[in-house]
Computed example of a mutant assay.
Amino acid sequence: MSALDLEAPGRVSRLRDIARRVAAEPSSWGVTPRFDAAARWYARLFAAADHEAWLLTWLPGQGTDLHDHGGSAGTFVVVSGALTEETVHAGTDGAVLRSTPYTAGDARPFGSQHVHRIVNTSAEPAISLHVYGPALTQMTRYRLADGALRVLEIDRAGVAW
């Protein structure tokens, strides 16, 4: 059984529905997406009692480290462009990464134990909308070495972002 199956009934699908709705209404964002060659740009759009939404931009080659969401479930929606998600899976010799491409309009829900990295492997800029529930309080960054996940750092809300 995956972590997605262990979530409270309807929680992940509700986050997906919120993400799709917010992604489809750019006039409600309150910010204009910007692109920064030095680092990925992101902005928190809003926080509710049980979830929050973030807007992220990605130039070609920009991506995240492997990370979790500190116990929060979520969904990301590709608003424009294309992104590749790499997820950790059990292989015959330990953990391996599996890549899945997503294009504009695709939504990717995930459970609270999800570990992944997202990269813009295309030649065009991309924009994505992310909804987490509950709101993020920390994220653990990892590296994959010798078939095992190793903790690099734990980032905390209000300190690291």
Rank of each mutant, 00 (worst) to 15 (best):
residue 90 A to W: 12
residue 78 V to I: 04
residue 129 L to C: 10
residue 119 V to M: 07
residue 48 A to L: 09
residue 109 P to R: 00
residue 111 G to W: 09
residue 59 L to I: 11
residue 1 M to L: 11
residue 17 D to L: 07
residue 116 H to F: 08
residue 138 Q to L: 13
residue 85 E to K: 05
residue 23 A to L: 00
residue 36 D to K: 07
residue 83 L to A: 06
residue 96 V to D: 10
residue 130 H to D: 09
residue 30 G to Y: 02
residue 4 L to T: 03
residue 55 L to S: 01
residue 59 L to M: 12
residue 152 L to N: 15
residue 6 L to W: 12
residue 51 H to A: 07
residue 131 V to I: 08
residue 81 G to A: 06
residue 99 S to R: 15
residue 30 G to W: 09
residue 77 V to R: 02
residue 127 I to C: 03
residue 136 L to Q: 02
residue 54 W to A: 10
residue 74 G to W: 02
residue 147 G to M: 10
residue 57 T to K: 04
residue 25 E to M: 14
residue 74 G to N: 01
residue 31 V to H: 11
residue 1 M to Q: 11
residue 40 R to F: 02
residue 121 T to E: 13
residue 15 L to N: 00
residue 25 E to A: 14
residue 132 Y to Q: 11
residue 113 Q to C: 12
residue 53 A to C: 10
residue 16 R to I: 04
residue 68 D to H: 07
residue 155 D to A: 15
residue 67 H to I: 02
residue 74 G to E: 01
residue 39 A to Q: 12
residue 129 L to A: 06
residue 102 Y to C: 05
residue 40 R to I: 05
residue 42 Y to M: 10
residue 15 L to R: 03
residue 14 R to N: 04
residue 113 Q to P: 01
residue 105 G to T: 09
residue 128 S to N: 03
residue 81 G to F: 06
residue 91 G to D: 11
residue 18 I to L: 11
residue 66 L to F: 07
residue 65 D to W: 13
residue 42 Y to R: 13
residue 75 T to Y: 01
residue 144 L to Q: 11
residue 100 T to N: 13
residue 141 R to H: 14
residue 153 E to P: 00
residue 17 D to W: 02
residue 57 T to F: 00
residue 44 R to K: 13
residue 40 R to E: 06
residue 5 D to K: 08
residue 146 D to E: 09
residue 142 Y to G: 08
residue 68 D to P: 03
residue 67 H to W: 08
residue 154 I to T: 15
residue 12 V to R: 03
residue 115 V to W: 00
residue 53 A to N: 00
residue 37 A to P: 15
residue 10 G to M: 01
residue 117 R to L: 09
residue 114 H to N: 10
residue 54 W to V: 11
residue 97 L to C: 08
residue 75 T to V: 05
residue 6 L to G: 10
residue 34 R to K: 15
residue 122 S to D: 07
residue 68 D to K: 02
residue 109 P to I: 06
residue 161 W to N: 01
residue 19 A to D: 01
residue 111 G to N: 05
residue 27 S to H: 15
residue 87 T to P: 06
residue 93 D to C: 12
residue 126 A to L: 08
residue 147 G to N: 09
residue 156 R to T: 12
residue 24 A to I: 08
residue 49 A to C: 08
residue 2 S to R: 12
residue 130 H to W: 05
residue 84 T to M: 03
residue 42 Y to H: 15
